[in-house]
Design a protein around this nucleic acid. Structure first.
Lengths: 198, 198
DNA sequence: GTCTATACGCCGATAGAC
DNA sequence: GTCTATCGGCGTATAGAC
């Protein structure tokens, strides 16, 4: 009877918690391998191996490979969309730029894969487009509230700001010999601020 | 003997010309399919089918699939690198922007594939980096010759100009609801000119 | 719930007839 | 020179034992 107690207590973790952790391990492994090797080269076998689960287990947590990238992308999107402060023009632009830079600091390689590969997966296209429109609308609203802003067309300006920040930061942070982050922030802020002042 | 003549004359086209045309057909088909379906989905079988040659013939003209993309990319690069005129700042910037826009007008989808996939093929990485450096150096030299340019660091400015033009044009031209080309040109020129004037 | 083993298909590339 | 036929390999996904 005392021996029974021993067997019962440390037997296993609560299965839901363990399952969630396994899921996380798979996602982390996928993020790592997609970032290192690209989406196509990041095979489910390699992901499973790196996460130290079998390929069979992987497919118990995700219906297919695309779903893994989809979840990584959606988490990423959810993190990023919160209102920047509407004060003066220069600090507002700085906030937008800085967020993009910080954001890419984490894992520029993975972001690269998501930016490039996700728009090809039909299941994600619409979500990405909605997200893009939301960002442009957000920036548009921000600019609309600032007296300093003097541009002919606010819609175009918002689109250009979002594209410029996203793609230029993306490029420079992902490139080895790119502009260092602090300087990149300063230059982009200068460029966009002058543009928006008209 | 007269029957011999008949057989000889219209038998075939000169083989070198025909071979060159077949090559072109393959390249054109590859460009089309890479642009539509992406590099991975654009299989050699589909390329061959679309070019109306057999898969065996395709491999007589190209050693492997990567070589097809490599040739498309190198042609593209060769076209683009010629000196812009160094007059005043605004026209110089406009020339840079306009070339990028014109360039993307042809086939924005294909360009997208080349920009995104080519840097993953080891055989092409070095060529692309050399090309990028050449472009930055070219723009740097151009800016250095213009009295209007007042920026702290010419290297950084040149890098930023190249990145901005390339990636923003790329993004807007490839997106359905993007900024229309004429307006894009105007806005980019305004933004970059103001930035460079300091 | 996790594993091993494997089905199945597709792809790049080659061989060899014509 | 162009074709058909096919090889070898790998990748996703599943079946079924434990």
């Amino acid at each position: 009877m005392p021996s029974d107690k021993r067997r019962v207590e440390p037997r296993r973790w609560p299965s839901q918690v363990r399952a969630a952790l396994t899921r996380e391990r798979i996602l982390a492994a996928a993020a790592h391998i997609f970032a290192e090797q690209g989406y196509a080269a990041g095979t489910t076998n390699r992901i499973a191996e790196h996460a130290r689960v079998s390929i069979g287990s992987l497919y118990q947590y995700f219906p297919n490979k695309d779903a893994i990238l989809a979840e990584l992308l959606l988490r990423h999107i959810d993190e990023e969309l919160d209102e920047p402060p509407a004060t003066a023009l220069e600090p507002a632009v700085r906030a937008i730029v800085r967020r993009a830079v910080d954001h890419h600091r984490d894992d520029p390689q993975l972001l690269r894969i998501m930016v490039e590969e996700a728009p090809r997966l039909p299941a994600l296209i619409e979500k990405i487009e909605r997200y893009d429109r939301a960002r442009v609308a957000q920036v548009r609203a921000l600019l609309a509230g600032l007296a300093e802003v003097r541009v002919a067309d606010l819609d175009t300006a918002a689109q250009l700001v979002v594209s410029t920040v996203e793609f230029v930061v993306h490029k420079e942070m992902a490139t080895a010999g790119g502009i260092p982050p602090e300087r990149l922030e300063a230059e982009l802020v200068a460029m966009l601020t002058r543009y928006l002042r008209g």
